[in-house]
Nucleic acid binder design. Structure first.
Ligand SMILES: [Zn+2]
Ligand SMILES: [Zn+2]
Ligand SMILES: [Zn+2]
Ligand SMILES: [Zn+2]
Lengths: 132, 132
DNA sequence: TTACATAGTGTTATATTATAACAATTAAAT
DNA sequence: ATTTAATTGTTATAATATAACACTATGTAA
């Protein structure tokens, strides 16, 4: 079963914004967009983002310092994320591939060490940009 | 064959520092450490870092905003990087696994798209921290 | 219901990471 | 020798993120 997290007011406002967005959002762009709803300070944004990341509702795209909503059934895999990033238009897509996640979840390094968590970012050209 | 890049003075100073370091270094820590050698401004550091990343002598650990020297024979795989990161002691190790890099280099997403580049960061506990 | 613990809020200030813009210099290519 | 690209030095500023503190709401357990 899957424990539902009840979001607080700030968390809900910020999640809704990110979830509606078609592209990853940066913290200060989020801040700008929620100021009319009473969220005035960076810290309010970062605190909500931290929590949303922790519970898997959003993910951070580390190479871009930006945040995207999880579209992986709200995410059972907060600890196992993979994205494709277009280097021209910056379109970001969450990859959900059973074989990929299986491969990585079972990956052991030389010393036989297994990992509890990973983040993978692929770079290339999206379909649209590739044909230009 | 492998084209050697001749480093400029600033690039060499900064590479030497990172290369000697046993842990990833942050830009402003690098700056602090090379000030006695005449590199005085952040931009001088960032420019050298950019170049060193581009030619594969160092890699950026995106989740940590830190830089580590490549120990993968100075790196044929600047575009295909994988690291393990200990969440307690922050030890970072570059993973060089033929099977992993083969798997990822050949990975295609749903749409059959292939990628020219990737970065993978694994998180967990290193041997030392795991036994505590 | 009272006490306690945990999580979230609002606020101000500040730390950290990174780039813009411009003038000058050096190295490489034609 | 000319010109092109890469690098440098410098000042200023932008963008990203956290510290510290006082306060409020929520959940749990006597
Ligand atoms: Zn997800
Ligand atoms: Zn694109
Ligand atoms: Zn490497
Ligand atoms: Zn460790």
């Amino acid at each position: 079963m899957h424990k539902e997290h009840t979001l607080t007011k700030n968390q809900q406002i910020i999640f809704d914004l990110i979830n509606k967005s078609s592209e990853p959002m940066k913290a200060y762009s989020i801040l700008f967009n929620v100021q009319k709803k009473g969220i005035k300070a960076p810290l309010q944004v970062y605190r909500a983002l931290d929590k949303l990341v922790k519970i898997g509702k959003i993910h951070k795209i580390e190479s871009r310092n930006a945040f995207i909503a999880c579209h992986n059934s709200s995410c059972q895999v907060a600890n196992a994320t993979a994205f494709s990033i277009c280097e021209i238009c910056e379109k970001v897509t969450e990859i959900s591939s059973a074989s990929l996640s299986k491969y990585l979840a079972n990956f052991k390094d030389k010393d036989g060490m297994k990992y509890s968590k990973y983040n993978l970012e692929f770079f290339g050209l999206c379909k649209k940009c590739d044909t230009k």
